[in-house]
């Protein structure tokens, strides 16, 4: 009998703006876009530059290090997967290259969390994608 335990919600790999990002995760690469025309860092991924109308977006790969801009500890969730995870930490991480992304902080406890904490991306591996989580450095 198949395992029916709830799993983390995973991205839709056919979504056109973000498909390239998720393909990159299979190689444990956190890819983001920068405009060759105006240097704007574009995040989340999309097909056009938000900084200029002559945009020429190129993919870059982050070194995966950043800092916690803010966080919360979820104590209550009715989601079938996340209710089994409480308490868990959600955070906005500012990567050193610029992109600010939403993720979970792993490998620590709520009590040890601080705004400004240095973190490093760690990959949670699933069959078709790897999920970028972060842990304290």
């Amino acid at each position: 009998m198949a395992d029916r335990s709830p799993t983390r919600p995973l991205p839709n790999l056919s979504e056109l703006d973000t498909a390239e990002f998720w393909r990159g995760t299979q190689a444990n690469e956190f890819r983001y876009q920068q405009c060759a025309n105006c240097d704007t860092i574009v995040w989340h991924p999309r097909a056009h530059c938000t900084g200029c109308v002559n945009g020429d977006l190129e993919w870059r790969v982050s070194a995966g290090a950043g800092v916690v801009y803010t966080f919360s500890v979820v104590r209550q969730s009715y989601h079938p997967f996340f209710r089994s995870q409480v308490p868990y930490i959600v955070a906005l991480v500012d990567l050193d290259e610029g992109p600010r992304f939403l993720t979970n902080i792993t490998g620590t406890t709520p009590e040890e969390m601080d705004v400004g904490m240095r973190v490093q991306i760690v990959w949670e591996e699933h069959e078709e994608v790897h999920i970028p989580l972060a842990k304290p450095m």
Binding site: P11, D17, W22, S77
Partner: peptide
């Protein structure tokens, strides 16, 4: 597609 994996409420 970029956020739902994190379980933000």
């Amino acid at each position: 597609n970029m956020e739902s994996f994190a379980g933000q409420t």
